[in-house]
Design a protein around this nucleic acid. Sequence first.
DNA 1: GTCTATAGGCAGATAGAC
DNA 2: GTCTATCTGCCTATAGAC
Lengths: 207, 207
Amino acid sequence: MESTATRMLDSAEKLVQTMGFNWFSYADIAQELGVRKASLHHHFTTKGDLGLALIERYIRQFQRALEEIDARQVDAAAKLAHYAKLYEDVLRGKRLCLCGMLAAEYGSLPEPMQAGIRRFFDFNEAWLAQIVTQGRRSGEFHLQGSARDVARMLMSSLEGSLLVARPYDDVERFAASASQIIASLRTPTLRERTRSKPSKGKRRSRA
Amino acid sequence: MESTATRMLDSAEKLVQTMGFNWFSYADIAQELGVRKASLHHHFTTKGDLGLALIERYIRQFQRALEEIDARQVDAAAKLAHYAKLYEDVLRGKRLCLCGMLAAEYGSLPEPMQAGIRRFFDFNEAWLAQIVTQGRRSGEFHLQGSARDVARMLMSSLEGSLLVARPYDDVERFAASASQIIASLRTPTLRERTRSKPSKGKRRSRA
DNA sequence: GTCTATAGGCAGATAGAC
DNA sequence: GTCTATCTGCCTATAGAC
């Protein structure tokens, strides 16, 4: 059985991800759950408190999902594909990434929420950088730039792909962008390689 | 001398791009311009009217900027670099793309604004697809996928790079992502080609 | 922990004088 | 085109009974 606080967070999360933090009110959640606004304020005194709780829970959920990926997948490419699937599932629910939405509204949010949003991005960046490093070592990925910069590019591109795909209510649009982004990391395929000059390729230092 | 309506649009545009459409009110604009709210309603009866006017003006401005690029730049790569600069300038003003912001708030907006947001993306996609086709013909770009899909990926990635970079107030973060995205289109350089293994590496199916 | 009641303010919008 | 005045409704938040 879910706690009341959890149901409140679930309802708020959906509202933020679909309509934005500045659009919804306590009345919306109260109505959906069949409680009074005052009950909401008992659990989350201010709207900022609620927003921060949302971000912190979202980070924890993402953390678990990434641990799951690390545990189940071996290849860097497979890990990355599953990472993209996480985003795709969000869009399937006709939502945006919680922190993607809040990043748009960033300037209007209380400071603790702003710090939480940056923590979410920092955490994702760190995980992705690790995957990029792994993929480069294994020869799966072909790329220039630091692992950190590639990680930032990947995260930003996926966030943007969600943002742009949603108005079209088109999961395929997202999937096409995501696979194109990921493909750009892949070592050139045989067909591409056979075009290249053979020769004494030396292993490059970090680009 | 700027018309009152123009100054109203300028003020509203900045508020939307920094704080979001659902955050600001007519009172904010009225205060900044030293007029009354009723004057605003005279020019833009409803907030939705104002929002739509904002989108339409933004599209016209973008159109002019892209014509400028077409007129001044010859190479597809140079055109793309200038396109990215358009985004970078937005971030320099500590703003988001108007339609990127509105895409986040999409679900909460009146239908005419929603249609306008899609027009903006469609228009950008069409221009980018043309550049991609040009670059592929000239041999500047190396890519898989249709010009349309590459165009969508580029636009989404740049929108997302703005979104993620802004909380860090870091134009360099955007620039690094943008140049990485664009670099992924470039035909492998000689130096990159020489590194590839000749050999029978087996081709994996598309991820 | 949930409720009723209410404060105090601001939202989007309109009427009508100047 | 701009103003004053006003409407109606919703917002976040709190006090205090149950």
